[in-house]
């Protein structure tokens, strides 16, 4: 009984602390507010079911972001036999950005920046947003995206160069 109570308290704390950053992470990956909302619920309910398997308390953030990132990837490629190409995915997300109820279209600079991010490959975009917005270390990012810290460092560098180029155009 004590274990169940402890689990409930831990999870409640986890939801309070991480639901907002997780939502924004998902929103940057899928753009649509409705999809990000559904994926946030999916992520946290999965976390609730698997919370007993979490061994290191210090790894909670990376663990949650990993569940969320995988949920977002699955969502973007759902009902497809082959994963979308970078260009197809980018076009789909840019369309979403143009036609969403919950986007401020007044600030052109912010829109252009997001558009540039959306032209990156799935992996680059994830690495870039985790580093730029969530300020994760390359080691933590590597655990989220199942890669090495060096690969993530290179991906971030390339993403930055690409965004800079696009913003100058």
């Amino acid at each position: 009984m004590q274990t169940l109570r402890k689990k409930m308290l831990n999870f409640t704390e986890l939801v309070k602390r991480y639901q907002e950053p997780l939502y924004w992470h998902l929103r940057r990956l899928v753009v649509s507010h409705e999809d990000a909302r559904d994926l946030l619920q999916e992520t946290l309910l999965q976390a609730w079911q698997k919370i007993d398997t979490l061994r290191e308390e210090g790894a909670v953030r990376g663990w949650l972001y990993k569940i969320a990132t995988h949920a977002a990837y699955r969502h973007l490629n759902r009902n497809r036999i082959h994963p979308l190409s970078t260009e197809e995915l980018s076009n789909m997300l840019l369309e979403r950005l143009q036609g969403s109820d919950y986007v401020d279209y007044e600030e052109e600079g912010l829109l252009r920046f997001q558009q540039a991010i959306l032209t990156l490959s799935e992996q680059q975009r994830t690495v870039f947003t985790l580093r730029y917005y969530d300020e994760m270390s390359y080691e933590e990012i590597a655990r989220v995206v199942d890669s090495s810290p060096e690969t993530c460092r290179v991906a971030y560098h390339n993403a930055t160069k690409r965004i800079q180029t696009l913003l100058k155009e």
Binding site: H33, L97, Y102, V103, Y132
Partner: peptide
């Protein structure tokens, strides 16, 4: 770190 996204 600002974004054009908002929530209800």
């Amino acid at each position: 770190r600002r974004m054009p996204y908002r929530v209800p």
